[in-house]
Write a protein that binds this DNA or RNA. Sequence first.
DNA 1: TCTGTCGGAATTGTATACAACATTGTGTTC
DNA 2: GAACACAATGTTGTATACAATTCCGACAGA
Lengths: 232, 232
Amino acid sequence: MQKPPPKPTDATEMVANALSLAIHEHRLAPGTKLGEDEIGDVYSVSRTVVRAALQSLAHVQLVEIQRHKGAFVAHPSPREAREVFEARALLEPRTARSAATRATGRDINILRQHVTEEHAAMADGDNGRAVNLSGLFHIEIARIADQETIGRFIETLIARSSLIIALYWRRESALCESHAHHALVQAIADADEQNAEDLMRSHLVDLNSALDLRERPVQTRSLRELLQQPAR
Amino acid sequence: MQKPPPKPTDATEMVANALSLAIHEHRLAPGTKLGEDEIGDVYSVSRTVVRAALQSLAHVQLVEIQRHKGAFVAHPSPREAREVFEARALLEPRTARSAATRATGRDINILRQHVTEEHAAMADGDNGRAVNLSGLFHIEIARIADQETIGRFIETLIARSSLIIALYWRRESALCESHAHHALVQAIADADEQNAEDLMRSHLVDLNSALDLRERPVQTRSLRELLQQPAR
DNA sequence: TCTGTCGGAATTGTATACAACATTGTGTTC
DNA sequence: GAACACAATGTTGTATACAATTCCGACAGA
């Protein structure tokens, strides 16, 4: 293993990542109150750090901060959900095309690895993990496309998509993204730009049509029992 | 004037806005060190608030925070500059089209007002203000398009564009955005979607071609004398 | 003069203390 | 019994104190 730098890791970032993962894996449901003291206890850091982490997550709209009220896991409205997928439709097909142009053999391997893991998570019935991995797949494509700026946008869209799926997914609809992803990888591996772009576009359409965008009530839950992440 | 709520204004937000404005108006040059104590003194707030504001600006990449080093006004590389304009080219034409579809008479008035102010700023030779107003024009179009999500992306792109202009603008190139903006307003007022989209696209191309994207050295400057904003 | 090391000063990272505000429960009044 | 007022409690907003790290200049040696 290669870890030349010991670990200049940042407490704020660690907390933000832990919370982000918990949200992505649907262990923290939309609407959950995120008390500062509570989180500070769980991760053994001060409120200063927790606040910074929460603000960071608020910026990517994973949590919503209400002045004097606190932070809550974001609860995207149907309208926001629509907007997120419109934005993805605008950004991701082009990005997939770029990825098809630039992908190296190593990139392809990474993508295949992702698809395999997704498949495994699905087989395990671990839906949270599957959703998270699926998101990472899209982010990986943006990385391959070598578009830092657009890639960041896509990251925030993926994050919010995870919440949207938690809220609006039709349970009767089969969540078999791995097929679409597999086809995408093939197109990228073949450097078939047009195909990659088209596949991504239709993949997003499919995703969108598996949603049932009607209002959902905001339900608040407790928190502590949902964070078993072993406090760093 | 209508101000029913007294002013639930947030100290962090005020500092962030003040700094943001200073950067947009090119009173703070790229690379400038933003010391926490220093800013705290200027605006009479504690470092806690300043830190939150700086992190907020770091999220939109107006400032760059280096661990244990501090915050600096961002200094976009030529590569980042290219990416920013690529992203704008991807997002803004479509947004202009939507704006043409949805704009009301009131919206048109607001846009015309913007163009007039830009013109005035240019006439005064106040370039900083002109750049800032020009950015606000683009943001206003996103607002009219009623695309909150994409609008936010555009906001961050505009912000970075301001830095890019500060760094890479060819001084010999005439900065007459108000003409392009005027034509755009007309297309939007006419609800001519295709024209609005095309005009926006070519406007961005023009902007881009007025840049000289070669490396610039990072020059650090002092700070205090550049912030005459009367400390709230 | 150049180089490298050491120590003090300055700055940032984190924790804690206090102030401001919101919420909730209780008691009083009608 | 319902509605309001108000106090008690808890949570967030801000300031300050302390720890950790970096920066910068002095100084010694080559």
